[in-house]
């Protein structure tokens, strides 16, 4: 445990000094700043208050870019350490693989989750300063969603970089997974739906297995299902599952999936050659 915390602590120290972390923080902080400047947070449209509207846009953008950010930076640093023989050296000391792997994971989690959380809180603080009411439920739900989103893609990144030994392969695989989850599945679903060849419940099931889709739906689940912005699948789910069940699912399912992926990565790390 002492070594696990040490590995996590050092990984955090190292990340805080790295270029990727600066870029990462600037992107999410900058995104919030952009919202303030463009006045997204001021107007009241379709029943949304300015602050909720801003948070909704923030989370929707984040759902798209956070996964690829986490995948690229994590894969680069973990696979990069192996290729440059940093891993060989660090693991030549008596540290257990359990402490090393989970320590790295813990350290990474802190550095990928904290900046987005801070950006979210920054937005809330600014909204309150402008005189809005505190949207407690929304802030709480979005914090939970960002938490499980970060955790899931971190788990995936750890799995990819332990299974695929070269950085290029692991990066390539990251892109493929991201694009598949992001766009392809949606387009395929739409196509199937239009053709009407498969049952609605199959389409909904597929949508609910895609974590990105789950986050999207989770993020809008707070709003009135009658709102047209929500889309048919989300509408259907909200209607059948109910708001609370949907929110719990949107938080728990990605965590469970992330846990499985990172555990699988750990098993590969232990059972296969390290270098």
């Amino acid at each position: 445990m002492k070594n696990l915390l040490q590995v996590a602590y050092l990984d955090i120290r190292e990340s805080l000094r790295s270029k990727w972390f600066i870029v990462y923080t600037l992107v999410f902080g900058g995104l919030m700043a952009l919202f303030f400047i463009t006045g997204v947070s001021d107007s009241v449209v379709m029943g949304f208050t300015g602050l909720s509207r801003m948070l909704l846009i923030f989370i929707q953008v984040t759902i798209i870019i956070l996964p690829i950010f986490i995948l690229i930076t994590t894969v680069k640093s973990i696979s990069g350490d192996r290729e440059s023989n940093v891993l060989e050296y660090m693991l030549s000391f008596p540290v257990s693989l359990k402490d090393y792997y989970w320590g790295k994971m813990l350290g990474r989690f802190v550095t990928v989750f904290l900046p987005v959380l801070l950006a979210l809180l920054l937005g809330v603080a600014f909204g309150l300063f402008k005189g809005g009411a505190m949207p407690w439920k929304m802030v709480f739900l979005y914090t939970a969603l960002l938490f499980s989103l970060s955790f899931l893609f971190l788990g995936l990144a750890f799995l990819l970089s332990t299974v695929l030994k070269s950085t290029d392969m692991a990066l390539g695989a990251s892109f493929v997974v991201w694009i598949l989850l992001l766009g392809f599945i949606d387009i395929a679903l739409m196509g199937l739906m239009l053709q009407g060849r498969v049952s609605d419940s199959l389409i909904v099931t597929i949508a609910m297995l895609n974590p990105i889709e789950v986050f999207r739906i989770g993020a809008i689940s707070l709003f009135d299902p009658e709102l047209t912005v929500i889309g048919p699948v989300a509408y259907y789910l909200l209607d059948t599952l109910g708001q609370t069940a949907l929110m719990v699912y949107a938080f728990v399912y990605p965590i469970v999936l992330g846990l499985l992926l990172s555990l699988l990565g750990y098993i590969v790390f232990k059972k296969k050659d390290l270098l």
């Binding site: 040490q6 120290r13 023989n85 000391f93 008596p94």
Partner: peptide, 26 residues
């Protein structure tokens, strides 16, 4: 066992952090 690699690896930890890591683990 101590291992001394062929090329010094490009460890990004500071000297202090590196020797603390080694102190703790070893």
């Amino acid at each position: 066992i101590s291992f001394i690699p062929q090329l010094p690896p490009p460890v990004r930890l500071s000297i202090e952090e590196l020797i603390n890591f080694i102190g703790k683990t070893s």
